[in-house]
Structure formats: structure tokens, C-alpha cells
């Protein structure tokens, strides 16, 4: 079970949203990281056959999905970043509809289980038109798991979820990744940290890194500094350095900065996090 991407590119008009991407995913959770406009959603749309590549190929177990999209569609679960629902159908009816167009047999029991998973059992027969954003997002998660997918592609899946649901879904993703391929895109770095076994870093439509989280973090080793600055100097530090986090304290503000050289005489080296590594690699890529 593997998905292989070769020289993948997508152009909208004159702009390349994605170019020269080569990747292979097997079972596990692959976290896609990158700033806005990096090409993460385009990449997900390409590997799910939602859109066609301008160049390159996507192969699922060796089969080119552009030529035989059905091979992939029968095993993929996809939660797009932007999606809608039919307001006049209930949650149960909507899932039943998607099950029928997926060619799934009797799916009633699984739909009930999935509604339980996303805590919508009590609202199963309510029309989707009255659902809040978070509830619709949970319906989206349920539909992505409808076909017991071998490949699960989820784009910003935890947006709109409360913390409890978010952690729960994160755990579900990690569990699914044990024997399937999960591609997860999110801006919420702790979600990636918690679930991803691999991380692919995209920037400006190109692949900057594809590594294990620990390897990625180690690339920022020796580049993360912390020290306390007076509150009135904070804006100056922010304007001259890549500040990862700030924490207010009684004696000032503790700043965490990603930099090659010590940013201040009082700055001390500290252990990097994934967020630091992300900032470090994106910063390096921009300077290149």
C-alpha cells in the first residue's frame, strides 16, 4: 500500500501552485506543513483526484490515478479544506447519500458508529442546514472515514473542533496511521507533533523537506535561543528576529528566537521544537 508522486506539478493560469514534487508515502501519518499558499491543499487535491496535474504522475500501488481514478477513489477518504453539505438533508441522510455514490453496501451500522465517533448521534436526524461550523466539520470527518479508507487525506481537519474533539480526532488519526496511509495538513503544529510519523514541508509550491519529525527538529538544533527582554524592547526584538514564542513574566518577556548566531549577549541555547524547526527551515528557504 503506497502512494508515489513523481515530478508532480499544477499550474493555475501562469502561476505554478506546485512543481517538481517527488514523494512516496507508505503506512503512517504524513504531516504536511507549510505557510499559506505553499501548495498543501493543491497537493491534497491532486492525490485525491479532485483535480488533474499539469505535469507528473500520482500512483496508487503502481496505478496512475489520472488514468484510472476509480482505483484510488474506492479506497480514499477525503476531507477537503473547503466543503459544503446539503442543507435539506439530515446528517444520517447525507452520509447515506455519500455511501451510495461510493458504492458501499449496507452502511447504516457504520454510519451510526461514525456519528457516535464524532459525537453527533443525538443530531443524526437533524437537517444539516441548522448545524454549526464545528458540527459540519464533524460530519466531514465522518464522511472521510465512511469507506474504511486505505488512504485518508485530511486538510485542516480540526478547525472548528473543541479541544476534546480535537484530541480525540488526533488520536483516531494516529491509530488509523498504524496500518494505513494518512495525509494530514494543518497549521496547528501540535496536531502534527502528536500524530505524524513523517513530515513533508512545502514552501512556495516546492518540497523543502521530507523527514521524520525527530530529524526535522534536529535540523534546528543550535539555532533556538531564549532570554528575557524588558517589555518596551519586545517590538524591537520582533522586528529584527524570527520570534517563535513570547511568555510574559514578572521581570519582562521571555522570548524564544530562531537564529543562527546568538541574538543577544544574554541569550541561551535551548532545545528546539517542531515549530522552531518549521520556522528555521522556512526562514532558510526564503533566504535562499
Amino acid at each position: 500500500m503506497s502512494i508515489t508522486v513523481s515530478n508532480l506539478g499544477k499550474r493555475y493560469g501562469d502561476t505554478w501552485a506546485l512543481r517538481n514534487i517527488d514523494l512516496t508515502f507508505e503506512s503512517g501519518v504524513v504531516g504536511l506543513l507549510g505557510p499559506n499558499g505553499a501548495g498543501k491543499s493543491t497537493f491534497m487535491r491532486l492525490i485525491t483526484t479532485a483535480t488533474q496535474p499539469t505535469e507528473g504522475t500520482v500512483r496508487w500501488n503502481g496505478t496512475d490515478v489520472s488514468e484510472q481514478p476509480r482505483q484510488l477513489r474506492s479506497v480514499v477518504g477525503y476531507l477537503p479544506q473547503q466543503f459544503g453539505v446539503y442543507p435539506n438533508l439530515s446528517a444520517k441522510e447525507f452520509l447515506s447519500y455519500l455511501a451510495s455514490i461510493r458504492g458501499l453496501g449496507s452502511a447504516d451500522e457504520r454510519i451510526a458508529d461514525l456519528l457516535d465517533l464524532v459525537n453527533l448521534t443525538d443530531e443524526a436526524n437533524d437537517r444539516l442546514g441548522g448545524f454549526s461550523g464545528g458540527m459540519r466539520q464533524r460530519v466531514g470527518i465522518a464522511q472521510a472515514l465512511l469507506s474504511d479508507p486505505d488512504l485518508l487525506v485530511v486538510d485542516e481537519p480540526t478547525v472548528g473542533l473543541d479541544p476534546q474533539e480535537r484530541v480525540r480526532f488526533r488520536n483516531v488519526l494516529a491509530e488509523l496511521g498504524e496500518d494505513r496511509t494518512v495525509v494530514l495538513s494543518t497549521h496547528i503544529v501540535p496536531d502534527i507533533e502528536a500524530a505524524a510519523t513523517d513530515i513533508a514541508l512545502l514552501h512556495d509550491g516546492r518540497m523543502v523537506a521530507h523527514e521524520r519529525p525527530s530529524a526535522l527538529i534536529s535540523r534546528a538544533s543550535g539555532s533556538v535561543w531564549e532570554w528575557v527582554v524588558p517589555e518596551d524592547e519586545l517590538s524591537k526584538v520582533k522586528s529584527t528576529h524570527t520570534v517563535s514564542t513570547t511568555t510574559r513574566r514578572q521581570d519582562g518577556v521571555q522570548v524564544r528566537v530562531v537564529a543562527e548566531n546568538p541574538p543577544d549577549s544574554n541569550a541561551e541555547l535551548t532545545e528546539p521544537t517542531l515549530e522552531d524547526a518549521y520556522l528555521c527551515l522556512i526562514g532558510e528557504d526564503m533566504s535562499v
Binding site: I101, G105, D113, V172
Partner: peptide
């Protein structure tokens, strides 16, 4: 509240596109 046994989900079988149902 945050855990769910994914294996407890009812299995589902892939079949043909059910035109009448759709």
C-alpha cells in the same frame, strides 16, 4: 472522551454503484 477504538467501527463492504439508491 478523547479516545475511540477505531476497530470497533462496523465494517463496510465496497460494492457497485447503486444507481437506484442514488
Amino acid at each position: 472522551a478523547t479516545s475511540f477504538d477505531i476497530d470497533s467501527l462496523a465494517p463496510v463492504e465496497s460494492g457497485e454503484f447503486d444507481s437506484v439508491r442514488v
